[in-house]
């Protein structure tokens, strides 16, 4: 509808790579690498946008969790059902959430 008002649609640029992290191992290795600059310099900071989606029937919890680090052109999509408790611990440890 807003297009009708002359606004263009927001689109994902070709430079953005969408990566599906299907296991906690993949989550661990990805975020450990992403956060490694902070191990070297504790004063450094890393910003990431996060979002979540869920099945319409879900009364609580989410289905997938998205992380878009501002320092890269990658967007990580994490299925929470596959993430498990280890994966959530990784995200907490790395201050993602």
């Amino acid at each position: 509808m807003a297009v009708a008002y002359g606004r263009g649609a927001l689109e994902l640029p070709d430079s953005i790579e969408v990566i599906w992290l299907s296991t906690s191992d993949l989550v661990e290795s990805t975020f450990s690498s992403l956060m490694s600059p902070l191990d070297v310099n504790p004063q450094a900071s890393l910003a990431a946008s996060v979002d979540a989606e869920w099945n319409i029937s879900r009364l609580s919890g989410v289905s997938v969790f998205q992380v878009a680090p501002h320092c890269s052109d990658c967007i990580y999509i994490i299925p929470v059902s596959a993430l498990g408790h280890d994966g959530i611990d990784i995200l907490i440890k790395n201050c993602i959430i």
Binding site: L10, L12, V18, S49, V50, E53, Q66, A68
Partner: peptide
């Protein structure tokens, strides 16, 4: 996948 990516990209 595209929908989820676009949402978080918009936030960024």
């Amino acid at each position: 996948l595209h929908y989820a990516a676009l949402d978080v990209y918009a936030s960024r």
